[in-house]
Design a protein around this nucleic acid. Structure first.
Lengths: 134, 134
DNA sequence: ATATGATATGTTATATTATAACACTTTTTA
DNA sequence: TAAAAAGTGTTATAATATAACATATCATAT
């Protein structure tokens, strides 16, 4: 079974649906709170669903915010590397397509005699919308 | 008073000393455990020292590991942006000098109509030493 | 169709990481 | 040397995440 046709379980679907509807990244306990009406009662149920969704690349974790976000890319093969633009004003997150970034980091790593495997990049600043509002 | 001549308090010195001696990043509670003999008894004492050390750029946090590392650079002005090479085999961390990286990210951000402010970059892979051991 | 192995679930308990609140002390500076 | 700013010590608690275990469901190879 390919990644993209991966069948999700009910819990996984519930968590992914919520994340896909959300405009900002969500914390695990915020997810839990939101989906308690759907029968999910314990943190572990959320974390397990998140683990799986991350593994198949449907969700990414934003480490510096302990938050989770649905992947914007169709057929994202990236269960590992992630690159984000995070607006400090409105908390919106944009995921960067990562091919050129991975290549750039691999090159940078070579200079340090380091074998690149994957990366997390979190860029903070002001997004388009918030720039315009000022 | 300039950043580099900043005078540290006893707690701050104790925490920084430990981090500077360590070859790997340390977690806050590992720091606490190690320095209890020096009279530091509570997590908050560690976190407060870390906060200050991070603020003045002497220590950085590695977000994906909830760990802290002393800055390798003299007069590091970077209390904000950080870039690391993290060895998945031995956990050693190398801090990348960030000037060209910041410039690169600022450029990449412009393409998304995003105003770059700072970044965290965590590159995972295999370090020089571990590559050679294989 | 069914045994079996892999994966997921529900649940309770607990581990790990981090901060709030408050009274007090030390340092800096005007 | 008083006032402001920064740091300390302490207790309690919040926020984030995992362990352990019994049970259930699904995939698939005979």
């Amino acid at each position: 079974m390919t990644l993209t046709s991966e069948k999700l379980t009910n819990n996984q679907k519930t968590v992914l649906d919520l994340l896909e509807k959300s405009k900002e990244p969500l914390k695990a306990y915020a997810i839990l709170f939101d989906i308690q009406k759907k029968g999910i009662k314990a943190p572990l149920q959320v974390y397990r669903a998140l683990d799986k969704l991350i593994e198949i690349g449907k969700v990414h974790k934003i480490e510096s915010k302990n938050s989770y976000i649905a992947c914007e890319h169709k057929n994202c093969d990236s269960s590992t590397s992630t690159s984000f633009l995070i607006c400090e004003t409105c908390d919106q997150v944009t995921e960067l397509k990562k091919k050129n970034l991975s290549e750039y980091f691999a090159k940078q790593s070579v200079q340090a005699n380091f074998k690149y495997a994957k990366h997390n990049l979190e860029i903070y600043g002001v997004c388009k919308d918030c720039k315009n509002k000022k």
